[in-house]
Structures are given as structure tokens and as C-alpha cells.
Computed example of a mutant assay.
Amino acid sequence: MKIYIGSKNPAKILAVQNVFPDSVLETAEVSSKVSLQPYSDEETLEGAINRARECASIEKGVIGIGLEGGVMETSHGLLLCNWGALVDEARNVFIASGARIPLPDEITTELEKGTELGEVMDLYAAKVDVSKKEGAVGIFTNNEISRIEMFTHVMQLLKGQFEFNKIKR
């Protein structure tokens, strides 16, 4: 099975590899068609679906994967959120979401200024490319869960739905 991943981000690629180790994986720079910093659950999901659909249309008979990280406002403050989408050869769309944790006020303040979370996290953690490694989830969970593990969980949810749908047919 050939899978196109709508990202060059190493954390996202490793998550797909973890769940589809026997598949041929290709990466593609595709647009999410949403803000660079998605600011709601809906926008983050839309970005993941857009990436997956664009990947699935690259070549006939392939699967497209879109993984998108964002933030969402709640009555408990700004939460980190993430979504994934898998579009199969028949253009069926499967979606899944994962961990949500609150972000500290100082992160929220920077995001409200229009700065992207990855940029904010690099400054906050005094590291480079946090979004390509442990991610905000890794920083704020004291590395109990990494961005790779978070997206791996989303990928497991997507793969399970995809396989169930094949059995159901």
C-alpha cells in the first residue's frame, strides 16, 4: 500500500511509519488551506482533511494522510489540540483526534499576538524545532508523551477505522 503524508515534519512522518511500517510512504508539501496556526478544533480538523484529500489525489490508488496540530479556546483556557485524517482509495474520509492539554497563560498571550505555536515553543523552551521533536505536548507533560506518540495514537485510531471499513464492505 502506498501512502502520501501531507507533511515533511519528522514527528508526523514517524507517527505514520509507526502505524504503517510495511507501507510505502511518500511525503508531500500540501496546503492545509487554513491558518498557519489553526485556532479552533474545527479549523484544525479542516486542515487535516484538506491535507489528506490533496495527498489522496496525487496518484490513483493511494491513501492520503493529513495530521494537523492547533489550539482551541475553552472555558478552561486555551488547549492544545490535534487532528488526523485518512482518505482512502475510494475517497472515504476517516478522522480522529487526540490529546488535549491546557497551555500556560504566557503561551496563550504570544499566540494571541499572532505567533505560531512552534515559534513560541522554541522561545519558551530555549530549543530549536520543538514542533519537529517533542512538541508542546512533550514540553508540558514533562516528556511523558511526545508529539510522535500523540500523532501515533491518532494514526492508530485512523488505521483502525480504515481497516474496520474494509471488513464491513
Rank of each mutant, 00 (worst) to 15 (best):
T115S: 08
S40Y: 03
D122T: 10
E68K: 13
S57E: 14
K33W: 01
M72C: 08
S23D: 15
I58C: 10
L78A: 00
I3Q: 10
R53E: 11
S7W: 00
V71N: 01
G114D: 10
E42N: 11
V137R: 12
P102K: 05
I63E: 06
R91V: 01
Y4P: 12
E106I: 03
L45E: 11
E149Y: 05
L86T: 02
R53S: 08
E26K: 15
P21H: 06
K159D: 02
L86R: 01
E42T: 10
I167H: 13
I101E: 01
F162S: 13
E149S: 14
K2A: 00
V93R: 07
I63V: 14
N142W: 05
A52D: 14
E68C: 04
E29G: 08
E116K: 07
I5E: 05
E26N: 12
L158Q: 14
H76Y: 04
S131I: 00
F164I: 11
N50E: 10
P38H: 04
T109D: 05
D129E: 13
I65R: 10
N142A: 13
I95A: 00
G69H: 02
Q156W: 08
L80E: 04
D88E: 08
L158Y: 05
M1W: 01
G70T: 07
N143P: 00
T109S: 07
F20V: 07
S75Q: 11
A48V: 03
G47P: 07
E68R: 15
S146A: 06
K8A: 09
T44S: 07
I95P: 00
K8W: 00
T27A: 11
I139S: 13
E116P: 06
P38V: 03
V93H: 04
A99N: 04
K33H: 08
L111P: 06
R51Q: 14
Y124L: 08
K168Q: 14
E43A: 11
I49Y: 06
G138E: 06
M121D: 12
L123D: 08
S32G: 11
N143G: 06
A136K: 14
K60Y: 05
D105K: 12
I145N: 12
E163N: 14
E119V: 03
V34K: 14
I167K: 15
G64R: 14
V137W: 05
P21F: 03
Q156F: 09
K2Y: 01
L157K: 15
A28S: 12
E26F: 03
G6M: 08
W83M: 02
C81F: 00
A136V: 04
I63G: 03
A48W: 07
K33L: 11
G6V: 07
S97E: 02
G61Y: 07
F140H: 12
N143Y: 11
Y39R: 15
A90R: 13
Q17T: 08
M155H: 12
S35Y: 02
T141G: 11
N142G: 15
G66Q: 10
I101V: 01
A28L: 13
Q161T: 08
L45I: 06
L117W: 01
M1A: 10
G135D: 10
